[in-house]
Design a protein around this nucleic acid. Structure first.
Lengths: 337, 337
DNA sequence: GGCGTCTCTGTTACGCGTAACATCATACCG
DNA sequence: CGGTATGATGTTACGCGTAACAGAGACGCC
């Protein structure tokens, strides 16, 4: 019973039928090229042995793996789950397998993950970051695989970027808050990555434009509901006149809102709250929170479509695709005056 | 410029140094086995050419890919993101790459994904389901890779299961609700998978034990905050005496709670609410919701540790590992009388 | 009957990193 | 100095699916 039975190969199937493995291989790819007598016999042998196709030899000789490497900073962040869902809605029907890796917002980890993915001969790469080390750029160039950067419409891209304008989005929301009378708005940031810095820039630009003093609270920790509550308590201590908070993502905003509830602070009368991304929760809760709705799934879909096109040899037509965002005022900002 | 420069191979590096590729291969694995003169030269050539290690030939000849296939029904469900985080916290330091695939709760899709993953010669599989088609069982047996099923401590496992007892967890929470005076509790279910059915069984067993009539609302849709609100409206129409709802996961519970807020229904005085899993949000919100806290990350970690042990040839010591869950009463149930 | 054409199957070679074994030079020993 | 141990490098073969080409038989056409 314990003979280590090896997984059957094409040769095993061929031997059983009495043909060469080439004929079996043909049957698997284009059954009509094989005589009908053999078709049946081969299918029978495949079933009996339980043959499982092995892609590895073909990857070795053709260097095409039909797998795409997707790098995200974090999986527990809903944004990236939705991005991946959009991406796979295109790649999966096209027969591409996703190799997912995450790097915890660390550039050196990103570098290592890219090397690993290229070691499996992925046909293409999706990166969720717009700033990369020289080594990363070099590896990608050497490997010669198409790459798309998502999440930000930053130029110049390595080859192609698909995203939205984080700076402009933060600027627009900040202006909306000011317009609604939240002039002493504090920015809540977590996980200081490149995108967060862009958002802070947008926030600061809007504040300064209106003659206001920007003030941001930053933490290296990951964002979470709990973190939002902590930041709110911290902000109340440091900034007595506080009348608004703009959070780098919805989690912080939701957490901050709950803390307001606990402290008996009226939202939006005393403090206005805005988040970022437009996840399901901010529109489900009472009150609905203001947020910047970003095109997560569409980014994923477009990235997949463009990558597949390039795998078919089509050239990059637009090196930067800037998708629109949308301001959702919700009920957590004061009424327009 | 457009000469299609191929990715450098070990041979290219070797040629540049004037040795055979075997020497370069040795340098990469055990540098001390190569003379110090060559060490420098080889490193220089590696850097110059930007050599990227290629795992595929080795996978072909050794059938070891150092990759593990992880199958989850859905990525946007936070539960699985946390499971994967726990899993990778062990596999990543051990040098294993995760190949993630999801199957949208469809058995035929699961079958196809498993075949694809085995096509890449993954060294092991993690499945998030405890019920499988005969073909799936056969494929796994034929491929001869170790498999671990997570999310439920169901026996018999294909080989090994690591999870918790969904039926008992639902039973326990239902009893707690009854004890707290929520005797007309309705069960909210979504995505009718095997685990949901087990939870419903636990709920029904508890209700019947106390002479109460079970009543569950089910939808094939994915669960979400919005869905929880819809189900609450539906429940109020169909069940006038309703004084409690127990949701198959936290998302539904949170959504149902917000709908109570909108309708001016007092929680927990009029309706008690309980969720399932213990995500961050239910303990951050006001009031904190009752929930069953499940060991998501630990399941992932344990699954990884056990799988790695088996890849090193250790036998399965416990075929079913039953992890504890914990009832968190929160503030959304009436006080103990 | 001879020739081209078509259909089906077989043959050969390829991709590339590494285990296992072979070889060679040097060092060390009694 | 013969013999053996040691270290460094080279040689060979392997894994397995598939592209490209080759061959064989059947058929049709003039």
């Amino acid at each position: 019973m314990s003979e280590k039975r090896k997984r059957p190969t094409l040769q095993d199937v061929a031997d059983r039928v009495g043909v060469t493995k080439m004929t079996v291989s043909r049957y698997l790819k284009k059954p009509e090229q094989v005589s009908s007598v053999l078709q049946e016999k081969i299918q029978g042998a495949l079933d009996e042995l339980g043959y499982i196709p092995n892609k590895v030899p073909d990857i070795l000789s053709s260097s095409k793996s039909h797998a795409i490497g997707v790098l995200v900073p974090s999986l527990t962040n809903q944004v990236f789950a939705e991005l991946i869902r959009g991406f796979e809605s295109v790649t999966e029907p096209a027969g591409y397998q996703t190799m997912l890796a995450h790097y915890g917002y660390s550039q050196s980890a990103e570098e290592a993950r890219i090397a690993t993915l290229l070691g499996y001969n992925v046909d293409g790469l999706i990166l969720s970051e717009s700033f990369h080390t020289e080594r990363v750029r070099r590896m990608i160039k050497t490997a010669g695989v198409p790459v798309i950067e998502v999440m930000d419409s930053i130029s110049p891209a390595i080859e192609q970027a698909i995203g939205f304008d984080n700076e402009a989005a933060a600027f627009a929301m900040t202006e909306l808050m000011i317009e609604r009378g939240h002039r002493n708005t504090v920015y809540f940031a977590a996980r200081m990555d490149a995108r967060t810095r862009l958002k802070i820039q947008g926030y600061e630009r809007a504040m300064r434009k209106h003659g206001l003093e920007p003030f941001s609270l930053q933490t290296e920790q990951a964002s979470s509901f709990t973190r939002g509550a902590l930041l709110l308590r911290q902000a109340l201590e440091q900034h007595k006149d506080l009348d608004g908070i703009f959070c780098t993502n919805d989690d912080l905003a939701v957490g901050a809102f709950y803390e307001c509830q606990r402290q008996g602070i009226a939202v939006p009368q005393q403090i206005g709250i805005a988040g970022f991304h437009g996840h399901d929760i901010v529109s489900a809760m009472v009150p609905r929170l203001a947020t910047v709705v970003t095109p997560r799934e569409e980014m994923g879909r477009l990235a997949a479509e463009n990558l597949l096109a390039r795998l078919q040899g089509k050239p990059v037509n637009r090196s930067v695709i800037d998708l629109p965002f949308r301001l959702e005022p919700g009920e957590s900002l004061r009424s327009a005056s």
